Amino acid sequence: MADTRHVPSSRLASREKENVDNISAPRTLIVHEAVRKEGEEELRRPTSSLMWSALAAGLSMGFSMVGDGLLRAGLPDEPWRPLISSFGYSFGFLIVILGRQQLFTENTLTVILPLLYERSWVGLRDVLRLWAIVFMANILGTLLFAFCVEGTGVFSPEAKEQFLELGIHAAEPSPAVTFAKAIFAGWIIALLVWLLPLAGSAKPFVIIGLTYLVALGQLSHIIAGSVEVAYAAFAGAVGWGEYAIGFLLPTLLGNVVGGVGLVALLAHAQVMEEDD
C-alpha cells in the first residue's frame, strides 16, 4: 500500500495545496541551514567591522542594566518587584539583536554550526578569531558604559542605587554557582538565536520573552552582567579581582558550555543524517 501520510487531501484544490505547503512549519534542517549561512557570513567579515559592531553591542547592553534599574527605582520594594523590573533587562538585547550588532553569546551557536559542518583547523582558527575580537570589544563596551554611568549625573541617585544593587547581587554567588547559572543563560540565548529565523514579525516578543526569563532566573550573562558588576567595581563596592575571577571567567565558561554544548551540538546532531 502506498504511503499517503504526506500527500495533501484530494479534496483540496491546487491553490489550497500550495497554501498547505506555505503554512507548514519548516524542517529543522532548514532552520539549521539559515543559522549556518549567517555564521559563514559573520566569519567572513573584516576584523574592523567585527570590532566596531561588537563595541557597539557592549555599549548597547548597558541599557539592560539601565532598564532594569530604572524600573526597580520606580517600583515599591515588594516581593513582586522583579516580576516587572526584569522586563527592563530585555532592552539591551532588543537593541543589539534587532540592530544586528555582534554579541558574543549569539556566536556560541551561529559560528559553531559552520565549524561542525566542515570540521577543520582553519575553521577552528576562524571561530577563535571571531570570538576573541567580539568578546574583547563587547567587554570594552561594557566597561566604558559602566564608567560613564557611574561617574556622571545622568541618572538619579535612586536609579544609581539600584544599578549598584544589581552589580553587587550579580557578583555575590560563588564561581561554581555563577558557572552553573551561566550555563543556563548561554543555553537560553543560543535557543533564542535558533528561534529567530522562524519568528518573523514576532522577533521582538521572542527576544523579550527569553531574555526576561534570564533576568527573572537571575542567570549569569557575560555581557549584560559585565555592565552590572563593572558598575559596582567602579563604585568601589566590588573588587576588580572579584569582577575578573569571581564573575567574568566562570560566566564566560558557562555561557560557552550552554551555547555550544547544549544547543549547537544538539542542533547539529538533529540534522546530520538529513544533511548527508
Rank of each mutant, 00 (worst) to 15 (best):
W52S: 10
E18D: 05
W131Y: 04
I189M: 11
L50W: 08
L252V: 08
L144T: 04
G217F: 03
S120P: 07
L216I: 15
F135S: 02
F234C: 10
K37N: 14
A73Q: 06
D275I: 14
L262R: 01
A202I: 00
M272Y: 13
R15W: 07
V31S: 04
A182P: 07
L266P: 05
T108G: 01
G209T: 10
G92H: 07
A170C: 01
W131Q: 04
F91P: 05
G99Q: 04
S226C: 08
I133P: 04
I139S: 00
A235D: 15
G99P: 01
Y117R: 11
G69N: 09
F93P: 08
F147D: 13
G236N: 11
F63G: 10
V206S: 04
D276Y: 13
L70E: 14
A199T: 01
S14E: 14
L115R: 09
I245A: 14
S24Q: 07
F135D: 03
F163V: 12
E228H: 06
S48H: 13
Y212Q: 14
G259V: 02
E40W: 09
R100T: 11
A159N: 06
L113K: 01
A267C: 03
V238M: 10
P79I: 11
D126M: 09
R36D: 11
G239V: 14
F145C: 00
L116S: 00
I133W: 04
Q101M: 11
V66P: 11
L249T: 13
G123E: 06
I183D: 12
A25D: 05
A182L: 06
A190Y: 09
D3Q: 01
I189W: 02
G153A: 12
T178S: 09
V134Y: 03
T105F: 09
A264P: 01
L113I: 05
D68Q: 15
D126A: 13
Y89G: 13
P76N: 02
K37Y: 10
G236M: 11
L29G: 00
L196G: 07
D21P: 00
T251Q: 14
D3K: 03
L59E: 06
A34C: 08
F93D: 07
S120A: 08
G141N: 05
A237H: 13
R27F: 02
G39K: 04
N22M: 00
A244S: 11
M136G: 13
L140Q: 03
G99S: 03
G123C: 05
E150Q: 15
G200A: 02
L50T: 10
Y231W: 07
E158D: 15
G225F: 02
L55M: 10
R5Q: 07
S10G: 06
L94W: 07
G209V: 05
S64F: 03
D126T: 08
G74A: 15
S24F: 02
A202S: 11
A171Y: 03
A182G: 08
R36F: 06
M1W: 14
I183F: 10
R125Q: 15
